[in-house]
């Protein structure tokens, strides 16, 4: 259980980066951290002590595998994370071009 809590800690660090950091890149890093933490948590959830990776090497071997589902899900999640990160970076890049800064406190044309 403790190990799960560590993941949550990582999650909270990521959130911390998002809320306190004013640099866009840091915010994106925060997201990356959150994604790692969730992926990791997923993977840890599917773990079974003493079990093997879910790859059948012989047709009639003993089926003592770790849970394959979280792995499949994490696979998807990683890709999604990659996609979001890429999009975010692209936006950040364009914002830098437009505003000449990464400081989120100065990027507030929209308000009210």
């Amino acid at each position: 259980m403790t190990i799960f809590v560590f993941c949550i800690a990582l999650f909270l660090i990521g959130l911390y980066a998002i809320v306190t950091k004013r640099n866009l890149i840091k915010i994106i890093i925060g997201f990356a951290l959150i994604e790692y933490s969730v992926n990791l948590l997923f993977a840890l959830i599917g773990f079974r002590r003493g079990a093997l990776a879910p790859i059948i090497t012989k047709v009639h071997s003993a089926h003592n595998f770790v849970d394959p589902i979280p792995q499949a899900l994490v696979l998807t999640a990683i890709v999604i994370a990659l996609g979001t990160t890429a999009v975010m970076l692209a936006i950040a890049l364009r914002i830098y071009e437009r505003y000449k800064t990464f400081d989120i406190a100065k990027i507030k044309k929209l308000k009210g």
């Binding site: 992926n39 993977a43 599917g46 990776a53 879910p54 994490v74 696979l75 990683i78």
Partner: peptide, 17 residues
Amino acid sequence: VGFSVAIMFILVQAPDL
């Protein structure tokens, strides 16, 4: 962090990941 995650994936028997 990311590579650590990768290593941890290996440790929890998730080579694909």
